[in-house]
Each structure stands twice: as C-alpha cells, then as structure tokens.
Amino acid sequence: MSFYKARILFLLLLITRLTYSQPCTNPATSNCADAIAGTSQFLMSTPGNADFEFNDMQKYVSGITLSGATQLRLKIDEQIVGQCKWRLMMYIDNNGYLPNNEWEPLNFYGSSGTVPELNLIQVKVYNGCGTPLNSGVYQIFAGNIQYDILEIIPPLPDPINLPGSCDGTNINGAGSYLSDYNEYNFNIDYRIIPGYSTRTGTYQIKINFCLVEIP
C-alpha cells in the first residue's frame, strides 16, 4: 500500500469516526458478554411502532397516552467477574430533518400552525424496583435537538450496583430479568398533548434505546 493510499484511508476513517455523532458508540472495554453474538440479551418484547392518531377534539385536549408501549428486558452476563458495568439510555432521532429540533413531517393537511418540536413527546420509564433515573416520572427531551439523550441507567462511577436490593438504586451490574425481573425489566409509556398551535399533518420520530458497557 502506497503512502498516499494509506493517508487517504486514514482520513476516511477519521471522517467516519468524527461524523458518527449518534450517542450509541462502541465501548472501550469488554468486561460484559456481547448482547448480539454472546450470552447477554437486550430484548424488546413490544412492537417497534407507536402510533398516535389525533382525530377527535377530546384527544387534542387531553392528549393520548400509550401505556407500556415499549418493554425492554435485559440479561447481562459478565466476562470478567466483578467488572461488568453498563449504561442504558434513549435518544431521539428525527431522521436528519432540518431544523433539527422538529419532527420529520411526512405530509401536511393544513397550512396554519407550526411543526411540532422534539420536546413534545413525553416518556416515562419505570420498573418494579424503581431503578431507572427519574423512575415513573414523565420527562421530555429537554435539549430539544436531534440525538438528545435521556438516561435510564446513567453512566455511574464505581462501585457497580448489583441486583437484589430493590431500593431504587440504579442497578448497572450483571444480572437478568429472569432472576431479578423488577430490576432488569423496563416499561416505557409515551404521552403526547399536541395543543392547538401545531400544523396538522403526519409526523415521525424515532426513539432509540442504547445499551452499552461502560468502563
């Protein structure tokens, strides 16, 4: 390989890494078992679509809530005993639509009003032991921008929180929904109250749930 080819390859890889701005990036360690080819599991037992249809004034007034629309189940195995620690987060994605604080419009029905912003959707994460950050509380993506993050289990400093206490601690060590269901299962509710200033039409966003090991 010539020097120039190597330099071009290096620059391409550098650009690839720099433009990869999504929050879910490869971890630096391998203390936990892989969830794709290994024995760990990251399961979403619910459909991958959440549809909100506002076709009645009462829905505009009261909003629509989809309870338990998403359910995540984790089984985390460790590769190195006592060293496996993980983080679970969600981030919002508007498919690159600009401005990057708005939902992606698929079509418009009317001409008046404004396109809804990303902080419109409310999410509530909870489980039986209250392990998520802000468990049971409706939150918004307050940063109101593409790839804005809401932590479910934040990247905590040591020590690793192991299951079993069921006291609301952010459990982030090895364990399984099979043995500690209320600490490794996460239910997510969605709620939208659109108000009357939004432009009628069909809009879309994607909410990504990222499970990743942390050092």
């Binding site: 879910c24 990036t25 490869n26 971890p27 360690t29 391998s30 203390n31 936990c32 078992a33 892989d34 969830a35 794709i36 290994g38 760990s40 990251f42 979403m44 991958g48 679509n49 959440a50 549809d51 909100f52 629309a69 998403t70 995540l72 985390i76 496996c84 993980w86 698929l106 959707i121 997510i188 969605y190 069909t202 809009y203 879309q204 966003i205 994607k206 909410i207 990504n208 749930f209 990222c210 499970l211 990743v212 090991e213």
Partner: peptide, 11 residues
C-alpha cells in the same frame, strides 16, 4: 462487546 440498540418509531 456489550452494545445493542432497539428502536421505536413514533408516528
């Protein structure tokens, strides 16, 4: 390594 992602499309 432990990394995985699930997606929900909200319409």
């Amino acid at each position: 390594q432990l990394i995985d992602e699930k997606n929900v499309t909200v319409t």
